[in-house]
Design a protein around this nucleic acid. Structure first.
Lengths: 148, 148
DNA sequence: GCATATTGCAACTATCGTTGTTACGATATG
DNA sequence: CATATCGTAACAACGATAGTTGCAATATGC
């Protein structure tokens, strides 16, 4: 199945926005992500609703970061995207009240719930500021076109 | 996105097969799962290649369990299905060698890898026999049509 | 041998969610 | 009033599983 790259893309954008004085247009962001301005607006709408970014219409408008990166966790962005399903694997629906199916699904659910808790705890424990600092370390080691 | 229910379905089938003297036809299995015999053959082909079941053509043929349930873990079945992607969330591809993107993806990869290890360890730690025993407990509490 | 039950498999369609695109309206700037 | 920009609806493209049809291969039993 086609996989959901919105979380990854939004983290990418937000870290860039901090380094970007003023606002960035949907078109500029789209170029950064290799996609289309409409996709950018659509995806960032959720972040705006949750107060992580603001958008301004008209000439000179665009998107601005509304909070310091250290105040935003990866889990925050996941939730701002409406907590899309994490797993590609699903339990089959129980067609006939079959007790075997129920035993299977109970076991699988426990396993997936544990993995989900592990993942979400980790996403909540990392902030965008952490990623920005990791980026800064990488840039020092391997300066990007002399701008680092 | 449409989610993959093959693991869940295969576990269901295998637990049933132990209680089934002799072989079960694709058609009978399909009825159990509320699907089509071709889907059953297609999915169970992987299990056959790994030696968990055997299939016999012709009248009186069908599918048979090739090992005791206690000798098969949930992780074994996941691998027999060719280890399909576990997560619906993906990292965006790095278009421009962007160091920000790389920092984002490294962080996400670490988080997803940890969650994956958690899940796989759990799937490897549970056998189909465990599920069968859980089923037996459920059946004692709530007998299905008097067959126990 | 022949009718039949059954698996094996190729090829196609259906489905579902993200992604990509087009089009148009709303709004702010100058 | 021209223009830049977001907002949103509507729809096509894509990718993976799931479902379906059709037919060949094979084993059984008469």
């Amino acid at each position: 199945m086609k996989r959901d790259s919105r979380l990854s893309r939004m983290l990418h954008v937000l870290v860039h926005m901090e380094r970007h004085e003023g606002s960035a247009t949907s078109e500029a962001i789209a170029k950064m992500l290799g996609t289309n301005p409409v996709v950018v607006r659509r995806t960032m709408a959720g972040l705006r609703e949750h107060g992580y970014v603001t958008s301004v219409k008209g000439p000179g408008g665009g998107w601005t970061l509304a909070r310091p990166l250290d105040a935003i966790s990866l889990g925050d962005i996941h939730r701002a995207l409406d907590s899309p399903p994490i797993f590609a694997l699903a339990a089959a629906v129980d067609h006939a009240g079959c007790l075997v199916e129920q035993a299977v699904n109970a076991t699988l659910k426990a396993a997936f719930d544990e993995a989900e808790r592990t993942l979400l705890a980790r996403l909540d424990g990392v902030s965008l500021g952490d990623i920005a600092r990791d980026h800064a370390r990488r840039a020092r080691r391997k300066p990007p076109r002399g701008k680092g």
